Amino acid sequence: MLQSLTFRLATKDDLVAIVRMLSDDTLGSSREKSDEVISDNYVAAFARIEQDPNQELTVAEMNGDMVATFQLTFIQYLTYQGGMRAQMEAVRTNSAYRGQGIGTKVFAYAVNRAREKGCHLLQLTSDKRRPDAIRFYESLGFTATHEGMKLKLD
């Protein structure tokens, strides 16, 4: 049975656990470095996120354990009559807690935060090599309405 989740903004003390979650799959393990000592790059990125009022790096806890994390970016733009959208990234559930309905609750929270901030849209991207994640997002009502493109700069 899924216990109650609590959500809060991440603190610098959460970085080790967050990076560990981000690296806990095939794709993440090839990109992240989840050592006990966090690199200066992660610390600097966290400081920029924490100082930006349009960024929310969030963690979900259950019984004192960090069970999930995600980042919301609130984007103001001119289209949609000066609308606002939320971009959701770095969505992870701790592997020890997957399959318990936590992801559904995380997305319900994120949808509510986006609405509270006045967003008319919540969007996310998912690597095509994550078919299970894509199926999960579709089960929540997300649809693939656009073809995303990226230009790797490094």
Score class of each variant (00 low, 15 high):
1 M>V: 04
3 Q>D: 13
3 Q>Y: 01
3 Q>W: 03
5 L>E: 07
5 L>F: 00
7 F>Y: 12
8 R>F: 00
11 T>A: 12
12 K>T: 04
18 I>P: 15
20 R>I: 06
20 R>L: 13
21 M>R: 05
21 M>N: 14
23 S>P: 07
24 D>F: 03
24 D>G: 07
25 D>E: 07
25 D>G: 08
25 D>R: 00
26 T>W: 09
27 L>D: 08
27 L>S: 10
28 G>H: 00
31 R>K: 03
31 R>W: 05
32 E>A: 12
32 E>D: 12
32 E>I: 00
33 K>P: 08
35 D>A: 15
37 V>Y: 09
37 V>F: 14
38 I>G: 15
40 D>T: 00
41 N>S: 15
42 Y>F: 03
45 A>N: 13
48 R>Y: 02
48 R>Q: 11
49 I>K: 15
50 E>I: 03
50 E>G: 10
52 D>E: 09
52 D>L: 07
52 D>K: 01
53 P>F: 06
54 N>P: 08
55 Q>G: 08
56 E>R: 12
56 E>K: 05
56 E>G: 12
57 L>K: 09
57 L>N: 09
59 V>P: 12
60 A>Y: 01
61 E>H: 04
62 M>Y: 00
66 M>V: 03
67 V>Y: 04
68 A>K: 07
68 A>H: 06
69 T>R: 15
71 Q>A: 11
71 Q>R: 08
73 T>M: 12
73 T>L: 13
75 I>L: 11
77 Y>Q: 14
77 Y>D: 11
80 Y>S: 13
81 Q>P: 08
82 G>Q: 07
83 G>M: 08
83 G>V: 06
83 G>Y: 02
83 G>H: 04
85 R>I: 09
86 A>C: 15
86 A>H: 05
88 M>D: 12
88 M>F: 06
90 A>Q: 04
92 R>N: 11
93 T>S: 14
94 N>C: 10
95 S>L: 08
95 S>T: 01
96 A>D: 14
96 A>H: 07
96 A>W: 01
98 R>A: 14
99 G>K: 03
101 G>C: 11
101 G>P: 14
103 G>Y: 01
106 V>A: 09
110 A>M: 05
110 A>E: 03
113 R>C: 13
113 R>F: 00
113 R>E: 13
114 A>E: 02
114 A>H: 05
116 E>S: 10
116 E>A: 12
117 K>Q: 14
118 G>H: 03
118 G>S: 10
118 G>V: 04
118 G>M: 09
119 C>E: 09
121 L>A: 09
121 L>P: 15
122 L>I: 05
122 L>G: 14
123 Q>M: 11
124 L>N: 04
125 T>K: 03
125 T>D: 11
126 S>A: 14
128 K>V: 04
128 K>F: 00
129 R>A: 11
130 R>I: 00
130 R>H: 06
131 P>S: 02
131 P>T: 00
132 D>P: 06
132 D>W: 02
133 A>K: 04
133 A>M: 03
134 I>Q: 15
135 R>V: 04
136 F>D: 09
136 F>N: 09
136 F>L: 08
137 Y>I: 06
140 L>C: 11
147 E>Q: 10
147 E>T: 02
149 M>S: 04
150 K>I: 02
151 L>F: 04
151 L>V: 00
153 L>P: 08
154 D>L: 07
154 D>T: 02
154 D>A: 12
